[in-house]
Design a binder for these strands. Sequence first.
DNA 1: GACCGGTACCTTGACGCTCTAGGTACGGCA
DNA 2: TGCCGTACCTAGAGCGTCAAGGTACCGGTC
Lengths: 108, 108
Amino acid sequence: MATAPLLQGTLDLLVLKTLSWGPRHGYAIARWLEDTTDDALQIEEGSLYPALYRMERRGWIEAEWGTSELGKRIKIYALTPQGRAQLRAETARWAHFTTAVAKVLGPA
Amino acid sequence: MATAPLLQGTLDLLVLKTLSWGPRHGYAIARWLEDTTDDALQIEEGSLYPALYRMERRGWIEAEWGTSELGKRIKIYALTPQGRAQLRAETARWAHFTTAVAKVLGPA
DNA sequence: GACCGGTACCTTGACGCTCTAGGTACGGCA
DNA sequence: TGCCGTACCTAGAGCGTCAAGGTACCGGTC
């Protein structure tokens, strides 16, 4: 829908959170996020796949090849312990940041 | 303090909101934001001044040279009508976005 | 009289993330 | 045959923020 560009640095948090419910492949991550937010967020594949690589390189997630119910080759990502720690850190950071912005916006 | 890097695209909103309370010069904008957020946000001058230029170029704010109480040359920025409209738009966008992220983070 | 910290402005270059816009491959359906 | 949906990937550009510098002036301190 609105297809608002993501605020930079948010995608990692969203993906980590998605994977905290269990392993998923890239395409499914995007669909789940869009469904969950009622299409308020649109996950561009050109953002998502590089993000997945980044996070894998950093040890936050691990990939494994598999097959979907539709018979497609899929790459399934799962959270690592570091990924869980990162999720906690980024969730805290997000809360901290939005609280600060709320203080600015608040006394409207 | 925490000096968390800003999420990209947020600085404009913060500055516009600051100026909605009345004209201020750059340095004062940074101080006000840091004070208001209890130093949760740190406004880097290397981010702020380019942002002010950007916003002036876009017609959201207007600058005028003046003198501070301390006798320093200061550049005072004021919101234009377009700036006010932009502030409304960005505030709505922020609310929309944080709501979406909350939906993802929410069922924690 | 030299030095330092605070006010106040500015610039350059690198960095990092997201987006646009492409591409491949395969299956099902009309 | 052609199209749509699934599913992955990449190159390049765009843009905002940051790090790290710089200038200038003032007041206070040693």
